[in-house]
Design a protein around this nucleic acid. Sequence first.
DNA 1: ATCGCGTGATTAAACGATTAATCAGCCGAT
DNA 2: ATCGGCTGATTAATCGTTTAATCACGCGAT
Lengths: 359, 359
Amino acid sequence: MARSGPKLTRIARTLGVSAATVSNALSGKGRVSAEMAEKIRATAAELGYVPSQAGRALRTGRTGVIGLVLPDIANPLFPQIAQAIELAASSSGYGVLIADSRGDVSTQTKAIERLIDRDVDGLVIVPRRGTRIADVGCPVAVIDTPSTPGNTVAADHWGGGRQIAEHLKALGHRRVLIIGNNPASNVQNDRSGGIRSVFGEGYHTDTLWIEPLEKASGKGCLLGLAEKVAEGYTAFACISDLHALRALTELQRAGITVPEKASVTGFDDLIWAPVITPALTTARMDMTEIAAIAVAALVKAISERDPSDPLIGAPVTAETSKVPMHLVVRQSAAAPPAFQSVQTTATAVTPVIEGGPQP
Amino acid sequence: MARSGPKLTRIARTLGVSAATVSNALSGKGRVSAEMAEKIRATAAELGYVPSQAGRALRTGRTGVIGLVLPDIANPLFPQIAQAIELAASSSGYGVLIADSRGDVSTQTKAIERLIDRDVDGLVIVPRRGTRIADVGCPVAVIDTPSTPGNTVAADHWGGGRQIAEHLKALGHRRVLIIGNNPASNVQNDRSGGIRSVFGEGYHTDTLWIEPLEKASGKGCLLGLAEKVAEGYTAFACISDLHALRALTELQRAGITVPEKASVTGFDDLIWAPVITPALTTARMDMTEIAAIAVAALVKAISERDPSDPLIGAPVTAETSKVPMHLVVRQSAAAPPAFQSVQTTATAVTPVIEGGPQP
DNA sequence: ATCGCGTGATTAAACGATTAATCAGCCGAT
DNA sequence: ATCGGCTGATTAATCGTTTAATCACGCGAT
């Protein structure tokens, strides 16, 4: 739009020098005397000069904008990611253009193309199963899981799973049901794998995948957790806080109190985790750190890039590619019924007398 | 970045015409013969020509990018908004640059400045109490509430409140507790006002504001809903699904079954509403419609704008500024206990015997 | 005294598109 | 036969910045 502020030439005219000198002084590139540079910087600041991105972009081929590609913006994790990426990017002087693909792969390809057509300098992609990241014409940072080939940086989902599992184990749980959405997701597999890896001899785990179940019983169907409790499961380790929420409410509805009769844990520390009753014990990603690393790697690749190169197709790499998750202990997980007399939860809630029969 | 595709001049050279003719043909502005125009369009398509935004922006002063300003990206409503705006904007050929202000007003001002400095053509702002929208140098669309001065388009929050209330009234509720976060929010006030307006003579409503309560009792504290039930309240009309979730789990935890002993309703139809047990009865905004109207109004203002004008400070206006909300009836609201024998819920859950004493 | 060199600045071209101004034909009317 | 007007295309300027090339100048060395 019509820029209100002064242009480069205005500063130049004010000081009686050429525009080139001003540009050099501000970028610190050419040969400018120290005092001249200082004077220029001063008047630029005074006049509130802001360089035109358009002019610069045209000349340098750099727009100072990166694209954020989410496979499914409806994922409640999105706010965390968007916020973290936006912060990291703007700290590095970059803007963030979003692209949504509403879960659809072909839409996603188009969305990426739109970003490329807008001359983004780089892309941050949080892929979902099926995402193609080939032959985009710019550097790409991928945030998925450490175990995914081509991953730039991600949370240590496996380690997070281990932390959750260790916590449940220490509380005394021996039969644990893992609840996930779809086994085709790398993230979900790593999380559940981490959980399973902790429970060895003498323990039992099984996994319930929601998506296939819903395909058979309809969206939002019951998971049949009351039966699982009857089968002796005392803990439900959910791969996401959304599943945890679903499990928790279903158990409560069936008269199975949490955490007294059954424990529930989640992942991601989503917005509702701290405010529901009981507050959710979960494992949180350090999104700020992950975003910082991803953006830093991307920015590095962008600045090192030859403006007119062939471009190797692989995603950029970072020194650190695995960021630890943090266990957040709240009230939804406690000792299983057998241990109840010796251990106690942190909550100060009124005990609830168990009610109805299991379906 | 280094654009891979062909430039305008390349197409011109290929056809042996001038770049200006190509530009005219593609934009349909100058005088070009029909057959020439057709030939140009054909080769442009064939070569996969994509105009350089930078070049165009420099010349026209239009970047084709709008900024999306959210006061608090962590709000779970954000995905819906972002998705809708992104869709509407990209359908109109615009990109969406996001700006987060993490709830802080001064951060928000800086974020808006960053967008302006990036030469966005316009801004979509979803304000929160305290947001200043003065003297930005570009058209602005505001999405708040129809009752807010300067609002461009918004959901009919008051009407949504009425729908929720009518539903509860029809079910037989006479004592309803409204649960909101902060009375200073226009949106929350409209919603609660709409609810109250339905319950006249012979009914009782009261309002519980969470924020002041948390200031006294700490974040994530109990809301004391069991006591409210004891006081005779049979329905809890929450201003947001997040509060509804909080209320629902607190009630369940206290052994008060929903919807048999108490009904709970929400607002916004957030991601978890359909999958929790019982599924949440709520009122949904038509974000797609709202976003479409907001973006259309913004785009109109942008294209009508004199590139070098003084710019009047007021937000853009749209023909339709109030979009109806939709009641989504699920299982969390049913007839109050007294009516239970004559009415029944849609859920096929096992009845739960009420347990523990109220705190 | 001249050459070479380093310093600090200027000139000018370039990025890719848009657009006002111009121009070459051509046809019909005076 | 000449002029005016219309059509379809070209020229050239412009947006704001960057940067390679150039230039003026003073200073030490040959």
